[in-house]
C-alpha cells in the first residue's frame, strides 16, 4: 500500500542541522512515488500534444542557436570548428540551470492550495522541478545528434563529464532555490530578482560563446581564475561541451575542486536553511 499508511506523523521533532541533506534524501526515497507522479504530470502537460509539444520545446534553443550563430559570424573572428554545437549545448545547459532555479523559487508559493491541504515533505516540490527539468534536458539533447553526425564526433571517455556536470548543475540550481523558495513566500518579488539575476548571468556565462573567449588571454590570468570561481556555470557548461567534442577540459584542477566544493556547500547550507525555515514559511502562503 501507500507510503504514509500507519505511519506515525510527528512534526515537532528536532530540526536537522548538518544531516539536512541526508534527511532530504530519505524523504525523497520515501515519497518516490509522489515524486514520480509530479515529474510525470509536468512532462505530460509539457508534451501533451506529443510531436508538436516536443517541437515547441526544442524550437526555442534552436532559434537562439541560429541567432547567436549569425551574430557571431558577423562579430567574432575567433575560430570555433563546432560553433553551432558549442552554442546549442551552452543554451541547453544554461536553461537546465535557469529553469531549475526559477521554477524552484516559485514552487512553494505556487502550490499553496496543495500545501494547505495535505502534508508531505515540501522539498518534494523543489526536487520534482529539478527532476522534470532534467528529463526535459535529456529529451532536448536529442537534437544535437544530427550535429554530432555532421561533425563525425564519436563518444570518447570525456563523456563521463556529462553526468558529473548535470548533477552539479542540478545541485547548484536546487541549492540556490532552497533559499529563494523560502524568501519568495515572504516577499513576492524575489522571483523577479531571480529573473533579472539569471538574465544578467546568462550574458556573463559562456553560454553562446566558448570559455576561451574569457580565459584565452583577453583578460589577465588572475581575473580569469577569479571568474571561474565566481561563476560555477562557466565550468559546468564547458564540461558538457568537452563531453561531446572530446576536447580536453582546459580548466586547472584547483579551480575545478573549488567550484565543486562551492556548489556542494551551497546545496548543503541551502538544505539546512530550507529544513529549518520551511515550517515558518508555509504560514505566509
Amino acid at each position: 500500500m501507500g507510503v504514509s499508511e500507519n505511519k506515525v506523523l510527528r512534526r515537532d521533532g528536532k530540526l536537522p542541522f548538518l544531516s539536512a541533506p541526508v534527511k532530504i534524501m530519505q524523504n525523497l526515497y520515501n515519497y518516490r512515488q509522489l515524486l514520480k507522479h509530479f515529474i510525470g504530470r509536468d512532462l505530460k502537460v509539457r508534451y501533451h500534444n506529443s510531436i508538436l509539444g516536443y517541437g515547441w520545446s526544442v524550437l526555442e534553443p534552436l532559434a537562439l542557436t541560429v541567432t547567436f550563430y549569425i551574430l557571431f559570424a558577423i562579430l567574432s573572428d575567433s575560430e570555433d570548428p563546432y560553433r553551432p554545437l558549442t552554442i546549442l549545448l551552452g543554451i541547453l545547459a544554461w536553461s537546465l540551470f535557469a529553469k531549475t532555479f526559477s521554477n524552484g523559487t516559485t514552487c512553494i508559493q505556487r502550490n499553496s492550495s496543495l500545501i494547505q491541504r495535505v502534508y508531505f515533505p515540501r522539498e518534494i516540490f523543489l526536487f520534482s522541478k529539478s527532476g522534470y527539468n532534467m528529463f526535459h534536458f535529456i529529451l532536448s539533447l536529442l537534437v544535437i545528434i544530427p550535429l554530432l553526425i555532421n561533425y563525425e564526433l564519436m563518444p570518447t571517455q570525456q563523456l563521463i563529464l556529462l553526468p558529473i556536470a548535470l548533477i552539479m548543475i542540478l545541485m547548484l540550481g536546487t541549492g540556490l532555490a532552497f533559499f529563494t523558495s523560502i524568501l519568495q513566500t515572504k516577499a513576492r518579488d524575489v522571483e523577479h530578482i531571480v529573473t533579472i539575476g539569471l538574465r544578467i548571468s546568462f550574458y556573463l556565462s559562456p553560454v553562446f560563446y566558448p570559455l576561451e573567449m574569457i580565459t584565452g588571454g583577453r583578460i589577465p590570468e588572475q581575473y580569469a581564475e577569479a571568474y571561474l570561481i565566481a561563476n560555477p556555470m562557466a565550468t559546468y557548461i564547458t564540461m558538457i561541451r568537452s563531453a561531446f567534442t572530446g576536447a580536453p577540459l582546459d580548466i586547472p584542477t584547483m579551480n575545478l575542486v573549488i567550484t565543486f566544493a562551492t556548489t556542494i556547500a551551497i546545496f548543503w547550507i541551502g538544505s539546512i536553511y530550507f529544513m529549518r525555515k520551511e515550517r515558518k514559511a508555509v504560514k505566509f502562503i
Partner: peptide, 27 residues
C-alpha cells in the same frame, strides 16, 4: 493535526493516514 503546520511548542502525534476535507476542488 493534519501536519500542515508544525507546532511551535509542545508535541503533536498522529497515527494513521490522515485526510483533511475542507473547501474542495483546488489542488
Amino acid at each position: 493535526i493534519a501536519g500542515i503546520y508544525a507546532p511551535d511548542e509542545g508535541s503533536v502525534e498522529v497515527e494513521g493516514r490522515i485526510t483533511l476535507l475542507a473547501g474542495i476542488g483546488t489542488g
